[in-house]
Design a protein around this nucleic acid. Structure first.
Length: 186
DNA sequence: CGGCTTTGACCAGCGC
DNA sequence: GCGCTGGTCAAAGCCG
């Protein structure tokens, strides 16, 4: 069972992957704080060398195994839930199979940067939550190894409700959105 | 006209 | 110290 990302009602998703049994496929990846085998990678210390698997692609390699086994996925879920508080302060990355780079997660994002990254033919886009006072950031890039996948990384926790909530939208529990008990004053 | 995207410039961290 | 790289800024342009 894979995680799903975005709004399943969005026809673009099914149209984007008509041959896929899943409308769109997503793995979630927890970054930072040494959760699992992942190492901290954002910002910096990323694609500085060929051996480096410390960027999102490296995380994907690790989590691809998890997606092949439901047990592993559950274990991963528990692990993340166990570290929920820490997770809220960390980065979470999703690897999503989609032709769309920017998916509607209910929040409004303002693009503030775009950079080409070393060893990747695809640029990386930077977004900030456009809600006043919310400093959540989002990083979007295509998987360098498989451009049909989009890597979306989130940093921070929204301190507000979803501006445009879709009833059909659902997400895995460690989703870094909205913490009513947002005491993660860093 | 306001909000957003684009994009080049700038800055900071890291490795050599 | 220098160069490389990633992340952010901000001015200009676009669009509804």
């Amino acid at each position: 069972m894979d995680y799903y990302f975005g709004n399943p009602n969005y026809s673009q998703f099914s149209a984007a992957n008509p041959s896929s049994s899943d409308q769109f496929i997503s793995d979630y990846l927890v970054l930072d704080n040494g959760v699992g085998n992942q190492e901290s990678s954002w910002p910096h210390s990323t694609e500085s060398s060929e051996k480096a698997t410390s960027d999102a692609s490296g995380f994907i390699a690790a989590t691809n195994d998890a997606t092949s086994s439901e047990n592993n996925n559950i274990k991963c879920k528990n692990e993340i839930q166990r570290n929920k508080e820490e997770t809220m302060r960390r980065r979470i990355a999703f690897r999503t199979r989609s032709e769309l780079e920017v998916m509607d997660d209910g929040y409004k994002w303002r693009k503030y940067g775009k950079k080409s990254v070393k060893n990747s033919p695809n640029p990386r886009n930077y977004y900030k939550c456009s809600y006043g006072g919310c400093s959540v950031k989002k990083r979007v890039e295509r998987d360098r190894n498989d451009s049909s996948y989009v890597i979306t990384s989130y940093e921070g926790v929204h301190n507000h409700e979803i501006p445009s909530y879709h009833s059909s939208f659902f997400h895995p529990n460690p989703w870094p959105f909205h913490s009513s008990s947002n005491s993660s004053s860093s």
